Structure formats: structure tokens, C-alpha cells
Amino acid sequence: MSATTTTTTAAQGHAQPITAENILHLFPEIDSSLADTATNGGGSGELQGYDEEQVRLMEEVCIVLDEDDKPIGCASKKVCHLMKNIDLGLLHRAFSVFLFDPEDGRLLLQQRADEKITFPTMWTNTCCSHPLGIPGETGADLSAAIQGVRRAAQRKLGQELGIPSGQVPLDWFKFLTRIHYKAPSNGLWGEHEIDYILFIQAKVDLNINPNEVQAYKYVSADELREMFKDEKLSFTPWFKLICNTMLFEWWSNLDNLDAFTNETQIRRM
């Protein structure tokens, strides 16, 4: 696998690697996106009409990657989630947390709020978000990146679900693997991520942020399988990918995860 992501533009007519040197040339909106303002419930352009708080969060700065998970720059969450940029190859770092009740092994799920700009109302794992281009959450090598996503996971569990950081210590998060996937949300928005999978077993108190989460529930593996049979329910694409490939094997080995942790290869999906 090459050390860069390759893309082709109609104007260029040939493949060009995405590197730190040419990222602004390929994605000129990256510069201007950081100046976008999220006022009066909509910001500008593509963000008109969305929830004010969710628009504000679109200003957060994600870590832009090459295909081997090496940081090559930063761009706003908005820029990273526009399909027009994703289709050119723009890729960013993310994480997915799976939190289990240590007493009965049930998994905490959330249903994303209506206000969410990408994949609203869908059921998904406990928490899914991004480490940011800020001190403590970045990392070029794998060990530093894992620690960065642990910090981001602790932060977002608090912001979305109201879980106190002391109930989810950083060293309780077990890193399993990374998945590289792409998925559209609608015609405008989508995901293209290298997603770090984190498991944690913890008894937690919840104080749900309704702007992020409209419902939650703890489920057993069999209950989750039944949910997937319900045609009235929809699920995020990364959650379905993980469930259809690896989750249930990992879940059945919650008390013996060492054989599945710290995988160095990136799984391409």
C-alpha cells in the first residue's frame, strides 16, 4: 500500500496523490471553511437551515490523513463530511466506542438525534466521533494516535451522554483495530474515515444531551440481532459494517480480549 491517498480530478485528468503539499490545491475550501461562522442557526452555504449547535460543531477541526493513517493536515468537520470532497479522496480520523455493562455484558446503544447533520435518527454504537487537531488528540504513530482517540472518546462520552470522565479512565479503553470505510449520508454529506474501534467495560451514569442523542438502550447480542430484523429501524453504516464482520466474535470474548487487541493492520471495507 502506498503512503499516500490517490485521487483523480476532472480538471487534472490524471491521478494525483494527496499529500501535505497538495492538499490545499485539491481541496481549496479547506482554507475558507475555518472562517465559516455558525450564527443564527445555519452558517453559510451547505449549512443553511440546520440546528445551530450542530452547525457550530461543524467548525471543529478534524485530522486529515493519507491512506496509511498518517496525518497530512487538518480541515473542518464540514469540509471532511462533504461528499464532493470525499469523492476526491479526503479522508479523516475517527473513533467508535462500544461500552459494555461489566455485570451482564450488555452493549449501550444510542439513537442519533434528529438535529444531527449526518445520519440523523439512526441507531449506532455507544459513541462515534473524531479526535480533533488539538493538543492531546493528534498522533502520527499508532501508539500516540490510540492515546489521542482515547482522550477524544472520553471527551465525547461526556459531551453526548453526560458520562463523567472519572467513570471511563483512559487506560480502560481497549483498542482493537482500525477500519477504513466510505459511506454517503445523503447527496450532500457522508463519511470517509479511518475509524479506531475502542471497547470499554464500565458502570456509568448517563445525563443525555438531547441535541446529540434522542434515545438509548442496553442490549444483549441476541437483542441486537433482533433489532436488525426490524425494518422500521435504521442503523449507521459503520455500525452495520462492524456488526456484520467482527462485533459478535469480539463481544463473545469480552473477558478475553487480548487476542483481538492492538491490531496494527488497517481493515479496508
Rank of each mutant, 00 (worst) to 15 (best):
F228Y: 10
I242A: 08
T245K: 02
Y216M: 13
T236H: 00
L224K: 06
P237R: 02
M269C: 12
F248W: 01
F239K: 14
W250P: 01
D222P: 14
L247N: 01
A259M: 01
V219G: 06
I242D: 01
T261L: 05
E263A: 12
T261F: 05
S234H: 15
T264V: 12
L233C: 05
E231S: 08
M246Q: 08
T261M: 07
M246W: 09
Y216Q: 13
N256F: 03
F260M: 15
W250L: 06
W238M: 14
S220W: 02
L254Q: 13
R267A: 15
N262G: 15
M227L: 09
L257F: 11
F235E: 08
M246G: 08
K232L: 08
E226T: 12
L247D: 02
T236D: 01
M269A: 10
F248G: 00
V219D: 06
F228A: 07
R267L: 14
E249C: 04
V219K: 07
D258E: 07
D255W: 01
T264P: 11
S220M: 02
R267W: 11
M269E: 09
R225F: 06
N253F: 07
D222V: 15
R225H: 10
A259Q: 03
F228D: 05
C243M: 06
N262W: 12
N244S: 13
E249T: 04
S220V: 01
W251P: 06
K232Y: 07
F235H: 10
